[in-house]
Amino acid sequence: MQHKRRTSISLELRHNLRVFWSASLGSFSNFLAEYSPAVFFGTAVPRYILQSAFFVLLARFAGGPELMRFSLLGNAVQIAANMGLVNMVSVVESEKWIGTLPLLIAVPSNKLPALIGRGVANMIEGLVGIGFALGAGMLLFGAVFVPLRLLMALPLILLVITSIFGLGLLIGAITLPLRIGTLTSNAMAYIMMVICGVNFPISGLPEWLQSITRLIPMTNGLMAVRQVVDGANYRTVLPLIGYEILVGFVCYVLGYLVFEARLRTARQRGTIELF
């Protein structure tokens, strides 16, 4: 009996991995169709660099080289975070625009691996964006980062992006019956630039807001990234990592539950096509 259950779990896991893999391949195909090399290097790369340069110059003018360095790292990670957030929401939203949502609802598979897999290409794009923004910032503004410490912080950056995907899933699920998913995620990305310690430390915010911002993906993770880049070891930032994982996990669970609830309601009322 126990053997049978183990086999069934293993089969389920393999099936979900297959769905995830297939969705990831689909995300790369979409990405390559949308971004030819000319479009990528002509529009996406300049956008990563110039967006971060704007805030870095503002920080340098206001607070000198120290705030500039703070802003450069924050904005580089924010580029990837923004991409994860906006694209994850548009993954959910695009299902209804393309007309594939009823099909997605009809398939017997778990929807989560498919939805997350669809965002994998953007996760990679986010990492590339961080590389360009940081590299250009170091070259243009003379900000100093030790490359080895940046590499050491890479798993934490991935953690931040992954937990932000969870927030994207949650926003996508909440806004599923509405037509403001992309807009909401864009607004959230800007709000995060203000309150998540991207451009100035959260200690600069009112105290009541500091408590709230710790409940948003990225805030804790970005603090951990900064500390590791500045020389701290992973053991020192373990509580921050724990918070980031917890906040991201809650977003995924809530996002999935809300998404399933939305689909259930739509099935019961027959309103899937009205999304």
Binding site: L58, A59, G63, G64, L67, V194, N199, F200
Partner: peptide, 8 residues
Amino acid sequence: GIYRFAGK
């Protein structure tokens, strides 16, 4: 917010 944080 950045100006105020930087004391300007």
